[in-house]
């Protein structure tokens, strides 16, 4: 019952998000959609995916979209209603509809006697250095997947820097001390949550991506409150931030090479040291993810100055 309502709501919101002519409305609906999809992940008992979806899919992606919208000229912020929804429009709807139907029938045709790698994962879990199967797969059994995904994030950031256009609008100056005080009070708590999520990843849902998302929002709040804590113009801090961007991929790949040296194979660890290496990699990765996500949002902010990142 609950699942049916959830599914219908997701479909309705997705439809609305695509059909609406007001881009601002589309973004708001998109954020709401992200929250609902996160709920769907929890219903599917995939809390790892739910956490990531809520933090990145709904939170940071929404912030990015809103920031991009503010940079767009007024005229193009709304789509002309009814324009270009002629024959070709129906062609695309038909195509995607057919794809959807084919997928549904394809999934339905798969026998329910499920075949998966879960038994194998469970059998080797004790040698993986962690007790949470998702973390074992991501950081040990298929470590190169995750290392290259981190690389995708880093290279996406390079690509975004390439497309950076200095903002046109200015934001309103902040009045009073409310935000500053609140951020100062909340910041230690956010860092604590990030560290907790990271630590928890070895035995329960959590890990570098979720922790990184929390770190990113902490950093964004610092910036919003115009606090001087992380001035990117200082030489040392600038170098630190740059090192942070690269840290995730670099540490991961270097530890992977170390595996060859230790006889555990490329991207492998000796079982007794695996836990420690995974913790090191996840810490570097969380820091990297936090810095990269925050940088991506910051650079798209309206009054962001070129050359500071």
């Amino acid at each position: 019952m609950l699942d049916a309502i959830l599914t219908l709501l997701i479909l309705a919101l997705a439809w609305h998000c695509v059909r609406t002519t007001d881009l601002f409305e589309a973004i708001v609906v998109f954020i709401a959609l992200g929250m609902l999809v996160a709920l769907a992940w929890t219903r599917l008992q995939a809390p790892d995916a739910a956490l990531a979806e809520a933090a990145i899919g709904a939170g940071l992606a929404g912030a990015l979209l809103l920031a991009s919208l503010r940079q767009m000229p007024e005229m193009s912020a709304t789509r002309a209603p009814g324009a270009k929804t002629t024959g070709l429009g129906w062609f695309w709807w038909g195509l995607w509809g057919a794809l959807g139907l084919a997928l549904v029938s394809g999934v339905a045709a798969i026998q329910t006697t499920s075949v998966s790698l879960m038994p194998q994962v469970q059998a080797h879990l004790s040698d993986s250095g962690v007790t949470h199967p998702v973390t074992a797969v991501l950081l040990n059994f298929r470590a190169l997947d995750t290392a290259l995904e981190l690389a995708v994030l880093l290279w996406a950031w390079m690509a975004q820097k390439q497309l950076f256009v200095p903002g046109r609008q200015t934001v309103y100056p902040l009045q009073g001390q409310v935000l500053k005080t609140a951020v100062k009070a909340l910041l230690p708590l956010m860092v604590l949550v990030a560290v907790y999520l990271l630590w928890r990843g070895s035995s329960a849902p959590g890990g570098a991506f979720q922790s990184g998302a929390v770190l990113a929002s902490a950093w964004l709040m610092l910036w919003l409150a115009q606090l001087p804590g992380l001035s990117r113009k200082q030489g040392g801090m600038r170098l630190g931030i740059q090192a942070g961007w690269l840290g995730g991929v670099t540490v991961f790949l270097l530890v992977g090479l170390l595996g060859v040296f230790q006889g555990a194979g490329f991207m492998g660890y000796p079982p007794d040291q695996a836990g420690a290496w995974i913790l090191l990699i996840e810490s570097a990765a969380a820091l990297s993810i936090g810095l990269l996500l925050a940088s991506m949002v910051l650079v798209s902010m309206p009054d962001f100055q070129e050359g500071t990142l």
Binding site: H124, M267, G268
Partner: peptide
């Protein structure tokens, strides 16, 4: 054929 991290396929890469 090389298995990464000494995890034989299908578990590993």
């Amino acid at each position: 054929f090389l298995v990464l991290g000494n995890w034989s396929t299908p578990l590993g890469l």
